[in-house]
Computed example of a mutant assay.
Amino acid sequence: MDDPARLREPIYLDYNATTPVDSRVVDAMLPYLTRYPGNPSSGHCCGTSPREAVTAARSQVGSIVGASGADVIFCGSGSEANNLAIRGTVLASTAARRHVVTQLTEHPSVLAACRSLERLHGVEVTYLQVDGDGRVDPQVLSEVITPRTVLVSIMHANNETGVVQPVADLARIAHDRGALFHTDAAQTVGKVPVSVPDLDVDLLTIVGHKMYAPKGIAALYRRPGVSLEPIVYGGGQEHGLRAGTENVAGVVALGTSAELAARELASGRAEELRELRDLLFRHLEERLPGRVQVNGDREHRLPHVLNMSLDGIDADELLSATSSSLAASTGSACHAGGTEPSPVLTAMGVDDRRARGTLRLSIGRWTSVDDVERAAHLIATAAASYGAP
């Protein structure tokens, strides 16, 4: 597959932030922006093609996670899907079941949803610590669940470190104690095999712009029988849980991207990405001996993500020095006019100095060996200018 011209410069190593839109996805969308403008809810002929397209996309999205299309609820973003899963579950529960368990390295949309439930509805939330590798210990979860626990929400893989959580083990503990389980799988669906029967989850978040569809479209898998309070009230679309006329072009894009990703997974692309990631790491280790430290579990992590700290550097300054040639993320975030270390790294026990020297390099569909080698050269050259730590 040809590398899109827009990605040739700078070298794009920020696929976890967002993926470029695949041209095949654009082609699938276009008819629903031009030839088929009808409302899927319309009873006349102009609603037929959009309605059929939405149904087909629902099946495509369900298929990539081993579910029925009937269990897929389309949303406007992963953050919205997470809010529907968390707030929807709690607000549909009885007053006797108002305890939620999550963990400190979740996506901000999960943490903010939980905090809003604490603030507005008096819900008790337990925030689990992670170990130095960024993983939740199932035993710790088993110790905090109570008869009041209605939901456990633990992400499938972390967006910064790529660390994969033991979701199946955690879900089993939740179910044994009568709680539902939600996982934010924004970073895993389409990147590695994901199966809701194997994970045994009740709710699972899927995000389009993490797998080569446009921004503004996502989905929530809901196990049959799970009750949710709607996130948007209105005309009854999306099983009455998310009112509003469907974004047909976006829905088609998500369905198409799911089908393309499923084919790619079947072809062994995940292993190819793992080899590219490891090649990038080896090049950096060779160029910067003793200065490269991987953050997060080395075994349980996504094949396309390298989160590493470079001793003796400031990652923001390093990226600024390469900004016209390399697009990547760092281990700090803008906050109140300054920068703060990543909360994810802090929760893992990474000190401020090391966090500020952290880069997140994430590769994807159009990353080549040449990209990896050039990126390693750019990073190592910039880092060398700092000298030995």
Rank of each mutant, 00 (worst) to 15 (best):
Q60P: 01
Q60W: 06
V61R: 01
G62E: 03
V65D: 03
V65F: 04
V65Y: 01
V65E: 02
V65N: 02
G66V: 07
A67P: 01
A67W: 02
S68H: 13
G69E: 06
A70W: 10
A70E: 15
A70N: 14
A70S: 15
I73A: 07
F74E: 01
F74K: 00
C75G: 02
C75W: 00
S77L: 05
G78C: 13
S79F: 06
S79H: 08
S79T: 07
A81G: 08
A81H: 03
A85R: 00
A85D: 02
R87N: 07
G88N: 03
T89P: 08
L91H: 04
L91T: 06
L91K: 04
S93T: 07
S93Q: 05
A95Q: 12
A95E: 13
A95Y: 09
A96P: 05
R98N: 09
V100M: 01
V101Y: 00
T102V: 12
Q103A: 13
L104K: 15
L104R: 15
L104N: 13
L104A: 15
T105C: 10
P108V: 10
S109T: 14
V110C: 10
V110Q: 04
V110I: 15
L111S: 13
A112L: 14
C114E: 05
R115M: 13
E118A: 07
L120E: 15
V123P: 00
T126D: 14
T126E: 15
Y127A: 06
L128M: 14
V130L: 09
V130A: 08
D131R: 06
D131P: 02
G132V: 11
G134Y: 01
R135L: 15
R135M: 14
V136P: 00
V136S: 02
V136C: 05
P138Q: 12
P138T: 11
Q139E: 14
Q139W: 11
V140K: 07
S142I: 03
V144P: 07
V144G: 09
P147G: 04
R148D: 13
R148H: 10
T149G: 04
V150H: 01
V150L: 04
V150A: 02
L151N: 04
M155I: 03
M155E: 01
A157D: 01
A157C: 09
N158K: 05
N159I: 09
E160V: 15
E160K: 08
T161Y: 03
T161M: 06
G162H: 08
V164Y: 07
V164Q: 14
Q165I: 01
P166F: 08
A168W: 06
D169L: 09
L170H: 02
L170Y: 05
L170G: 02
R172P: 06
R172V: 12
